[in-house]
């Protein structure tokens, strides 16, 4: 097992073409290639110095050859730094592009959502049941698009360290009920029972209600996606000393143990049995983790393949 992992790592390390593609630079600019060259130069230099000091008894020759070696190493070092810079710059440009594109998309999405809401809530007279149903479906599609754009924008903001949280004193129970209400239609379609439990008296915490709602939505929506028909998804809220803890538990397909260390990575999607049955971007958990951590909390999970998963997060209670 360990040997296999090591072999795979070494293969990845030396697959220069793949690395160059991943980083968006040419092969000779990949860090691995430059390190190999550097190692090679050091070996040649050591042999050369040994040869020179054995055959020439002049300090001048030694100084000149040493200087040449230093110059070569310096040049290679410079190449390495340049290629890192190039990669970093390309990455930054990509993030900026996503950020600008998503901003531009948000205005037409807002226009669409507000007009549909206006039509359905204030001017529904004369619309047949069928028409209302169809407009309702358009509304859901448009909201789905808004969520996608928001996800991309959130990731860009997280990557730029500019995710804004507007904190207010909130009863986390309300956030849980909202998230349950949001996800209920999806669980009904999937044939999954969605349950929740909150303590009678839950303390107020200082959070960005919308964003923590997004994080919880993502966790519940994942639980529904990765649970088979007739499964159960439960959401509990508990108070533990100076923390509020939320648990999202399912009896679904679980996460394979070899993937458990990757699930919070950007764009990661599990390769399990449900992969082809569910749509997703692989951004939900990455965003949830960042929102919760930036709110001063923690997100973790336990999962057994075939038995189910449990995602937990805790947030600090504010002292009044």
């Amino acid at each position: 097992m360990l040997g296999h992992k090591l072999k795979k790592r070494l293969a990845d390390e030396f697959d220069l073409v793949k690395q160059a593609e991943d980083l968006g630079v040419s092969v000779w600019q990949t860090p691995s290639f430059l390190f190999i060259v550097m190692g090679f130069v050091i070996l040649v230099a050591m042999t050369g110095v040994y040869f020179i000091s054995n055959n020439y008894d002049s300090p001048d020759v030694l100084v000149i050859s040493e200087s040449a070696v230093v110059a070569i190493l310096f040049t290679i070092g410079n190449f390495i730094i340049n290629s890192f810079n190039q990669v970093a710059k390309a990455n930054k440009m990509k993030t900026e592009f996503v950020s600008i594109a998503s901003h531009q998309l948000k205005t037409p999405i807002a226009e669409m959502n507000w007009q549909i809401e206006l039509l359905l809530s204030k001017f529904p007279e004369g619309l047949s049941e069928k028409q209302q149903l169809l407009i309702g479906q358009i509304e859901r599609s448009s909201q789905k698009m808004a969520r996608l754009v928001n996800d991309l924008l959130d990731v860009a903001r997280i990557d730029q360290g500019r995710l804004a949280l507007t904190k207010e004193a909130v009863d986390l129970c309300d956030v849980v009920s909202d998230a349950i209400a949001n996800q209920q239609p999806f669980s009904t379609i999937a044939g999954i029972e969605l349950k929740s439990a909150c303590p009678v008296k839950s303390p107020k915490i200082l959070i960005d209600k919308k964003r923590i709602g997004v994080a919880l939505d993502n966790l519940i929506s994942n639980a529904i996606k990765y649970t088979n028909k007739q499964g159960v998804v439960e959401v509990f809220l508990e108070v533990k000393n100076d923390l509020v803890q939320v648990r999202v538990r399912d009896n679904g397909v679980g996460i394979p143990s070899n993937e458990q260390c990757d699930i919070f990575k950007k764009f990661f999607r599990s390769n399990n049995s449900m992969k082809n049955n569910t749509d997703g971007t692989g951004l939900g958990l990455y965003i949830a983790k960042n929102i919760i951590e930036q709110s001063g909390g923690k997100l973790w999970f336990q999962s057994i393949e075939g038995a189910g998963s449990e995602f937990l997060f805790s947030l600090p209670i504010i002292k009044a």
Binding site: K106, T107, I109, A110, N113, W114, E117, L118, S121, A146, V149, N150, T166, K210
Partner: peptide, 12 residues
């Protein structure tokens, strides 16, 4: 007083 992101908020 406060700040709302248009695409994230419903009219109600």
């Amino acid at each position: 007083t406060t700040y709302l992101v248009k695409a994230d908020y419903r009219l109600d």
